[in-house]
């Protein structure tokens, strides 16, 4: 399928989902669905570096939090224009602020992408488990930084009050849900584009044999930096609407371990070699977690992840996509366009 057609189909599915939820009429569906969609974006983003290049990033929570705190930063700036800006700037700034959420998402993507570039330069010369540890360490550094930065709330946390109503969508959660659907479409389209381009082939050589790739002149460091930037930017974009969703953010919730763990577990369970894997994994695991939250307790979520991960590592190391290919004999050669 060509990319425009793919986007069209994806958008149609997204719209159908939105209208079905709207038809059912229970807003809880939107709240729960938002979280699942957010995980689809996170898992897809993680997979660009972790699945395609084979570099396991334990810092997903950090990038997510960068998105969260970019929103909080600009929100706070908007709140404090009168005290922050010189007099002549106040009037024009009041026209711009508060920034609309879509703009915040783009800004969050930029900031997270830049941080991704920096992190890449610092850590991408490390391989395997050392890289994973470095990304985890960087997340801790970022969290410490945020905890001590009182402008964005520090360890007290920050409140973001979403407007009650928005034009067209009505209820604000409908708007957030629609935005997240859009992000899912963007994330999946980018992942699929990468997978089928030379970028994807280059990434795969890094995963398969990085030294051989270097000897063949594949610009490995540059490719890895591209992967970190794209992956980081998407994670940041997924985090940007979060304060509006949750209303109150503190560092421990923005840097929550569950983001790091889920964004690794979901692609692993779904399958890491194609864009379908993270999607399937996130849908399955995310929905399961939402059901468990309602029926049992949200504390059981990480347990579910752990059990499923063990199950899949043993029974189906190539994930659900791998299982499907084994059963239906669709190898990569046959599936190639």
């Amino acid at each position: 399928m060509r990319t425009p057609a793919f986007i069209l189909v994806l958008t149609a599915v997204a719209a159908a989902l939105y209208f079905t939820f709207n038809f059912v009429g229970n807003d809880y569906l939107f709240f729960a669905g938002y979280v699942v969609l957010q995980y689809i974006v996170l898992a897809t983003a993680w997979n660009i570096l972790g699945g395609y290049c084979g570099y396991v990033n334990f810092g997903s929570a950090g990038f997510f939090a960068i998105g969260v705190y970019t929103t909080i930063f600009f929100y706070t700036v908007g709140q404090k224009i009168d005290t922050l800006m010189p007099d002549w700037l106040i009037a024009p700034m009041k026209l711009i602020f508060p920034l609309p959420l879509p703009v915040l998402i783009v800004l969050a993507g930029l900031v997270a992408g830049i941080v991704g570039l920096g992190m890449g330069y610092l850590t991408l010369r490390l391989r395997g488990v050392f890289f994973a540890i470095a990304t985890l360490a960087l997340t801790v550094v970022m969290e410490t930084f945020i905890v001590n930065w009182s402008f964005v709330g520090g360890s007290r946390g920050a409140y973001v009050i979403p407007p009650n109503e928005v034009p067209i969508f009505g209820n604000y959660i409908h708007f957030l849900f629609a935005l997240m659907l859009l992000l899912v479409v963007i994330a999946l389209t980018s992942a699929r584009l990468i997978e089928r381009s030379w970028l994807g082939v280059g990434f795969a050589t890094i995963r398969d044999d990085e030294l051989a790739a270097e000897a063949s002149g594949v610009p490995t460091l540059r490719l890895k930096l591209v992967a970190t930037v794209v992956s980081g930017a998407l994670m940041g974009m997924a985090g940007a609407p979060f304060p509006y969703y949750i209303g109150y953010v503190e560092p421990a919730s923005a840097f929550n371990l569950s983001y790091a763990v889920n964004s690794i577990a979901m692609p692993m369970i779904g399958g890491t070699t194609s864009w379908v894997g993270p999607l399937v994994g996130a849908l399955l695991l995310g929905t399961l977690q939402q059901v468990a939250t309602v029926t049992i307790s949200s504390a059981v979520n990480l347990l579910i992840v752990g059990l499923l991960l063990i199950f899949f590592v043993i029974i189906a190391p190539r994930g659900i996509v791998g299982l499907y290919q084994d059963w239906f004999g669709k190898s990569r050669k046959g599936a190639k366009p």
Partner: peptide
């Protein structure tokens, strides 16, 4: 150019892709 010990091809890429990657 180095032809590494043990060949070290990209096993999950096609022959043609391996060659084209060589021309990076």
């Amino acid at each position: 150019a180095l032809v590494p010990e043990g060949r070290r091809l990209f096993p999950r890429q096609t022959v043609e892709e391996n060659l084209l990657l060589g021309a990076s």
